[in-house]
Write a protein that binds this DNA or RNA. Structure first.
Lengths: 196, 196, 196, 196
DNA sequence: AATGAATGAGCCTTCATTCAT
DNA sequence: AATGAATGAAGGCTCATTCAT
């Protein structure tokens, strides 16, 4: 049977609450009770919807990844030149929906979680690979394959590093600076032809 | 009274076990019991030495940071030119003692922990600032102040990003590649004068 | 929402078990586990209902005080003359529901607990004051205010003292003797007009 | 071998610390560590001297009882008439060395402890009986045996009750009032011949 | 659909106690 | 005599999870 709209709404509330709670705490060591309370429902209902804490975690992760993927797709749809495509991917990474203190922390938590949880690792890998192939595809018209691979890896590292560092800044994250850093890296790679 | 050598040894065992356990689990949500058992002592003794779980965590963090600082200092002592100084810092970041799967994960865990724990945040900031000033000092002979600040931030992001990404790779981290990436970033910044 | 009858029953079971356990042990140093087991429920459920050990203690104390207050009220309702009112209060103090070895010990434990626990002290004071004003009110028709205050205090001391002493007697407490002692004190005060 | 004076001093320090700690806490649920620390020695030394927590408790109790017995004996030595003997016993009960907030609480704690600890009960009974026979002996010249027994019991209850009640008063205990209450009780019994 | 009741497991922590020095 | 090291046991409490309603 199809999910009722009420169910969809409840599920979404719970995922939102999970991101918030996990992000604030900077850890998965949060109780289902707290998440459920925040989402305005009983613990038992959260279990009913997601089957368990693991379900909540995986579903929350999936939500974050899906949102990011949409952001990327939307950006790519409006881009025509390779450079525009690259800029779109970078911009998507720091889009408003993602680049907020709490959400950043949640991202990092999931990164770490994937480190020891196979299902989480699988989930993350799917998106990681897709992003990587997006980057390489956009770079191939601009350089040879070897350079493209290195540049993609470097850019991805730059993006992730900016994520981590901005999350830590007391003054809060700044998407503009992060994007500028990444694009600067990219421009330098393009200008120098990746000569190492 | 001075710490006896047996106490020092026990404390170190426990810190090592903590890094291992936290790193493997990718989380601070590990029991003191597991850490203590791994270190070959009773839970109660761990409390006797560290006062509590928080004490263990903070002390473990301090150990990691101190070890990194030593690595940096050792590298800087052998460096003469600015470029060598920069390379030394980068290399220290991926030194063998740090850049191992488990240790990397522990680093990230502490990063996240600082996110919600003031004492951890203070501790981390001390080292973060020192590293930053090391980078800027080494860059100032090579470019103007504004560029130096941007480059330092970018290089730090590149280092952290490489950390995160290498931790996730199924094939395990590769210090050589990470160092190459960071040095490439640096060279490009130097060559182009940071023109954005 | 109103407390379900099952909840009320469970709560009462736990309070009864608490009185028993605390009374037998003569101390608050009893484990929640023991109380809960005796009440036929899990430790976790005890926490669910009472929020913690403190909650159990305070609620148990409240129960004891409430029961005593009811006993007093019931006695006063049947009394018409001042002397009858005084006798009623004395009798209530040694009523069957209160004057049993275990319960007496529990009373003393709570007395002592109030000594170092502000919430317990507050709770106890409310009842102490009410009892005192009951005594003084009943005495005022029989003597002047100054004497009434002294007599009330003396009678209260006599009641408490009988409590303590009877609790200690190997042969167990004897309500009749205790009541006789207290009434004798009272009669002497009335006969001599409290001349000191 | 005889106890060295150093040992005697240490033991006394520990007993004093025990009275203080137990009295403040209003409970035997205090750690040996706290007592020992307060007495300025290590936990292990406390064990060395007293054999265990039980030893500390019993010895502390014994100290309190002995001190009280001395106070009584000293008072009786100066008394010549039966009335003076009775007054001496009452006064000893509220002597400065005993009637202080902390000490009172400690007394009550031990009373309760005797409730469930045979050794403590035995100890207490010895003194209880001696006090009782002191009272009866002093009363026999003034009334017949039956009345003397009742009066002794009543006076003892009055003393204990005053103890309990004064310990609880926020304004602190007042020895003068307590003594007056007890002597008033006694005078009334003597005047009326204990006619019940 | 939704929730309170209920619990076993586990965690952090403290404690009384012993032992080697 | 005196102490730090060391531990098994126990306690209060929380949590993920199930179940009956």
């Amino acid at each position: 049977m199809p999910r009722t709209s009420v169910q969809t709404g409840r599920r979404q509330s719970l995922i939102d609450a999970a991101i918030l709670t996990i992000g604030e705490q900077g850890s998965l060591d949060v109780s289902v009770r707290e998440i459920a309370t925040r989402a305005g429902m009983s613990t038992a209902l959260a279990f009913h919807y997601f089957g368990g804490k693991d379900g909540i975690i995986i579903e929350t992760m999936r939500h974050l990844l899906r949102e990011f993927a949409q952001e990327v797709r939307a950006g790519l749809d409006c881009a025509t030149t390779p450079r525009e495509r690259l800029a779109a991917i970078v911009r998507a990474s720091f889009a408003a929906s993602q680049f907020e203190r709490t959400t950043i922390a949640a991202w990092l938590v999931f990164y770490l979680h994937a480190y020891s949880s196979p299902p989480a690792a699988r989930l993350l890998q799917v998106y990681t690979r897709r992003l990587r192939s997006n980057l390489v595809d956009a770079l191939l018209p601009l350089m040879d394959r070897a350079d493209a691979l290195l540049t993609a890896e470097g850019l991805a590292a730059m993006i992730d590093g900016s994520y981590v560092r901005h999350a830590l800044r007391p003054q809060g994250p700044d998407a503009g600076e992060a994007i500028a850093s990444c694009m600067d890296y990219l421009e330098n790679r393009l200008a120098r032809g990746g000569a190492q």
